[in-house]
Simulated scan of single mutants.
Amino acid sequence: MGLFSIKILLVLIIGYFLGSLNTSIIVGSIYGTDIRKHGSGNAGMTNTLRTLGKTAAILVIFGDILKGVLSYIIGNIIITAIPDSSTLYISGIGGMVGGIAAIAGHNWPVYFGFKGGKGILTSFSVVMMMDWKLGLILLAVFVVIVAITRFVSLGSILACAAFPIGAAIKGNGTVFILFSAILSILAIARHNGNIKRLLNGTESKIGEKKRA
């Protein structure tokens, strides 16, 4: 195994274990609640807001964003810290690998029986690190969709779907587009239940309790 492969493996491991620190589950435990047993059952910010309130949700927002940012930064540091002549080296790839690993860790956390959240906040933090201008555009898409429909899930899904499309339009490069597509697929796939509820009209709107 070459030096570049070892560094990529290290980035994957660190990113995954950081991502596995699922903030909503940790915050829920502080409140004496397993967030996965309430509301939608999703270990994420929206369910935390519905179940535990605004203060708990703010803590989740901070934690989920922080671990995405840290995974991205650490990934880039590891890849660039020890110079090598690998032809596979691409600027920013360490951050992208670390970010994707953190999202995977959030969705399937090793510390919590591989049952996590949907990774939207962590995904957003990674997107901002990859291309903050595109990230702000996607945030605007999310806000507009949620404001019109009041469906957080729909805003998340459409914003994620727009990421690789926006990256391609901006000409961010093949590797960037590939990673944006992986990120998008990871996020949208975790919304399978939401998509079904949106289609049959039973999805909960923001501010509502989870529908039966």
Results as ranks from 00 to 15, higher is better:
Ser86Phe: 05
Phe17Gly: 00
Leu134Lys: 00
Gly207Asp: 02
Ala140Pro: 05
Leu18Lys: 07
Thr87His: 09
Trp132Val: 03
Ser85Asp: 15
Leu139Arg: 02
Ile137Ser: 03
Gly44Met: 10
Leu3Pro: 00
Met96Arg: 14
Gly41Phe: 04
Ile13Arg: 02
Lys67Ser: 14
Phe124Cys: 02
Pro164Cys: 10
Ala212Pro: 00
Ala187Cys: 14
Lys209Arg: 13
Met129Cys: 13
Ala162Leu: 12
Gly155Trp: 02
Thr202Lys: 13
Tyr111Ile: 11
Asp131Tyr: 02
Lys7Trp: 09
Phe112Leu: 01
Leu10Cys: 11
Leu49Tyr: 13
Ile26Ser: 10
Ile14Asn: 04
Met128Ser: 04
Leu88Trp: 08
Asn172Gly: 04
Ile182Thr: 11
Ile206Ser: 02
Ala104Asp: 01
Ile90Met: 06
Ala147His: 10
Tyr89Ile: 13
Ile61Gln: 04
Lys196Gly: 01
Ala147Leu: 14
Gly117Gln: 06
Arg197Phe: 05
Lys118Asn: 08
Ile30Cys: 11
Ser180Glu: 08
Phe179Asn: 10
Phe112Gly: 01
Gly173Asp: 03
Gly166Glu: 12
Gly155Thr: 09
Leu139Gly: 04
Lys170Thr: 02
Leu3Asp: 14
Ser71Ala: 15
Met130Ala: 14
Asn22Tyr: 02
His38Glu: 15
Tyr16Ile: 07
Ile188Arg: 07
Val27Asn: 08
Leu186Phe: 15
Leu121Asn: 09
Val126His: 02
Trp132Met: 02
Thr23Leu: 06
Gly75Ala: 10
Val97Leu: 05
Arg190Ile: 01
Leu139Trp: 09
Leu18Ser: 07
Ala212Glu: 13
Ala189Tyr: 15
Gly95Ile: 00
Ile13His: 01
Tyr111Gly: 07
Ile14Gly: 01
Val27Asp: 07
Thr51Ser: 15
Thr23Phe: 07
Gly41Arg: 05
Thr23Met: 13
His106Tyr: 07
Gly63Thr: 12
Arg36Met: 03
Leu178Arg: 05
Gly171Leu: 08
Asn192Val: 00
Ile78Tyr: 03
Ala81Tyr: 14
Ser5Phe: 06
Asn47Val: 15
Ala161Ile: 15
Ile74His: 09
Val143His: 01
Gly44Glu: 12
Ala101Tyr: 01
Leu12Val: 15
Val143Tyr: 05
Val141Asn: 10
Cys160Arg: 01
Pro164Phe: 05
Gly155Tyr: 03
Phe163Lys: 06
Gly2Tyr: 09
Lys209Cys: 03
Leu66Tyr: 06
Ser125Thr: 08
Ile35Pro: 01
Gly135Asn: 09
Ser29Ile: 00
Gly201Leu: 10
Thr48Leu: 12
Thr80Asn: 14
Thr202Ala: 12
Leu59Lys: 14
Ser20Tyr: 03
Gly68Pro: 09
Met128Gly: 04
Phe114Ser: 05
Leu138Val: 12
Met45Arg: 13
Ser85Lys: 14
Thr33Asn: 11
Thr46Trp: 01
Ile169Asp: 03
Val110Arg: 03
Pro83Ser: 04
Ile90Gly: 00
Val141Ala: 13
Asp84Val: 07
Gly28His: 08
Met45His: 08
Asp84Ile: 07
Asn194Met: 09
Leu49Gln: 10
Ser204Arg: 05
Ala102Gly: 06
Glu203Gly: 06
Thr48Tyr: 10
Tyr72Ala: 08
Gly28Cys: 09
